[in-house]
Nucleic acid binder design. Sequence first.
DNA 1: GTATTGATCTTCT
DNA 2: GAAGATCAATACA
Length: 156
Amino acid sequence: MIVEVEAYDGDDPAAHGFRGRTERNASMFGPPGHAYVYRSYGIHWCLNLVCAEAGAPEAALVRALEPTTGLDAMRARRGVDDARLLCSGPGRLCQALGITREQDGLPLDVPPFELRARPAAVEVVTGPRIGLTRAVERPWRYGLGGSRYLSRRFVR
DNA sequence: GTATTGATCTTCT
DNA sequence: GAAGATCAATACA
């Protein structure tokens, strides 16, 4: 269950697509409903849900999940036991799910991906995005209120 | 609890 | 040559 995301668009100096299309960020330019997976700090993979229409780069970075199924497989891939450390961070969740460049550009509505709507209304909290040096002030981080699986607490 | 550092890919200056 | 949508290990409070 997705509990934390951040938004990025083409007018955003902090976004990868801001300076145009490159080999790495190509899938961020659409079509929508696909995955954008990129290498972070040379070590980790990070997963975005592409929202781009009409060739403008837009995507939501998935920053944290609450693991609900496949806990043992996640533990095996991550090498940790604590459920709260399995997916609480963009690099962590990709390691837990086994996501790499192989999934870059794949549609999100067919296997191995599957997206479902939330079962009921939830409380969404917002705040500044994490780890940026540009456009720091934009409150484009969204989280599930009170979740214990966020990458970092939201200040209330 | 906070602070610092190393890992080392891709893009930008 | 430097910075970056990060994490884990280590040091210290």
